[in-house]
Amino acid sequence: MANIAAQRIKREFKEVIRSEEVAKCAIKVELVDNNYTELKGEIAGPPDTPYEGGNFVLEIKVPETYPFNPPKVRFITKIWHPNISSVTGAICLDILKDQWAAAMTLRTVLLSLQALLAAAEPDDPQDAVVARQYKENLEMFKLTARHWTNAYAGGPSVNPECDDKIKRLVDMGIEEHQARVALSSYNWDLERATEQLFS
């Protein structure tokens, strides 16, 4: 690994650890391997959003050309968000692509992702299904996102109705995550979800 990338990550690592966001448990970075190429990030769901109370784990891969190229970041925790793939966790965020700047850091990236959770950009979606739901039925989107936060990110339980529907599908022999995706995609319409799953 290029020396500059490792050196910089080391410095950033300390910066993140020292930063006040860590004190507020808003962001966190951990080393995965010892040569600073792979890290594990964690962000807290921002307050007053469906993600509140959740804790989202991120995979951060630092390229050799860092900081002249952005780090490769994706969500490991499953999340229901128009700009994040509900399947792969891939993120659609300009600063992680063509709007990267060499002065940006792991800390700014994590804070940007936190901001992305608070302010989705449905017109530039990563996950088309989520984005459509967000635009057509915002309440349904919030419900789903909150449910996903509860299911995967340790957020508070809010709607037992959703859990019931998933349980019914699971009872029919469907895998839980598959059932959740189907229900979420069809606005928690059990019939249509079942139809889609068994067709």
Binding site: I4, F68, N69, D98, Q99, W100, A101, A102, A103, M104
Partner: peptide, 28 residues
């Protein structure tokens, strides 16, 4: 008025994977 070392800012401005508008801008 942002501060960079010569080698870093030059390397950034030579990063051809971005648009010129991006690399000609101050990274900060």
């Amino acid at each position: 008025n942002h501060c960079f070392c010569l080698c870093c800012i030059r390397k950034w401005r030579q990063a051809r994977q971005f648009e010129n508008k991006i690399i000609r801008a101050c990274p900060e």
